[in-house]
Nucleic acid binder design. Structure first.
Lengths: 116, 116
DNA sequence: TGACGTTATTCCTTAACGGGAATAACGTTT
DNA sequence: AAACGTTATTCCCGTTAAGGAATAACGTCA
C-alpha cells in the first residue's frame, strides 16, 4: 500500500488563497473557537497561523475569520458565514476533482517507489 | 477578468513527485533535447533543474529523463517512453480535474480581490 | 590529441521562511 | 482596579532553500 497524495491549491496568481494547510486551519478554528488553540492542535506557531488568516482575509472581498480580543475567555475567533461558504466550496472542489481521476491516480501510484 | 489559478501536485507523502514546475520542465526538455536549454527557457538554474529531474527519477520505479554526456553536441537529454507516459497521465489528470469544477472556480473567483 | 558543449557534482554565499520571545491592546470577571 | 487569556504585532535569530561559480567527466569530431 502506497501513499500517493494529491495536493490542490487555489492561487490568485502570486500567493495561495486557500489550500490544504489553510483549510485545515479553518476547520480547527471552527472546532476550537480560537486561533491559538487551532494552531496548537496543528503544531503551528500562532504567528504563522495569524499570517495564514491574514492572507485569506486580505485576498477575499469579505473576511473569512472574525477574531475578537478581550471578553470572557480573553477573546476568540470564528469563521464568518462567508468563510464557511468558501471552506465548503473548497471541500466540494477537492471532492469533485478527486472523484474523477481514480484511474490516473491508481496508475501513477503503481509506478511510485513505495519505500519513501 | 481575474486570474484564479488551480495548482495540482502529486506527492508521495513527503515530496512532490510531479507538479506544475516539473511538468513544465519535462515539456521543455522534449522541446529542446537538453536540460540546460530547458532550464534557460524557464529562467531556472541548471542546478535546480537537475535536482527536480533527480527527484523524479528517484521517485518512480523507472527513469523519467534519460541524459547523456559527451557526443556530437556535448550530450543531451530526452524523456523515456515511461516519462512521456507519466507526463501525459499528469496532463490528463489536470484536464479532467479542472473540467469538473468550473462552477466552483467561478464562484471562488468572483469573491477574490482583483488587484492582486 | 585537443576542442567542444552538455551533464554531473561540490562548495560557498546569500536570501527567504518560520519560530520564539516579548509586548501591547482588549473586554469580561472578580 | 487587578487578573486573565486571547488577539495583534514587532523584533531577533537559526535553519533551510536556492543561486552562482567552479570543476570534472564524457563522447564525438576535426
Amino acid at each position: 500500500m502506497k501513499k500517493i497524495n494529491i495536493k490542490i491549491r487555489v492561487s490568485n496568481g502570486f500567493e495561495t488563497v486557500i489550500g490544504p494547510g489553510k483549510a485545515d486551519l479553518l476547520q480547527h478554528i471552527i472546532d476550537t473557537g480560537s486561533i491559538s488553540a487551532a494552531a496548537k492542535k496543528m503544531n503551528m506557531s500562532y504567528r504563522r497561523a495569524w499570517e495564514l488568516i491574514n492572507t485569506m482575509n486580505q485576498s477575499f472581498d469579505e473576511p473569512i475569520v472574525i477574531a475578537k480580543t478581550g471578553g470572557i475567555h480573553g477573546g476568540g475567533a470564528e469563521l464568518s458565514d462567508f468563510g464557511i461558504k468558501i471552506l465548503n466550496l473548497y471541500k466540494v472542489l477537492i471532492q469533485k476533482m478527486l472523484a474523477t481521476v481514480d484511474e490516473e491516480i491508481t496508475q501513477i501510484n503503481s509506478h511510485l517507489k513505495s519505500w519513501k
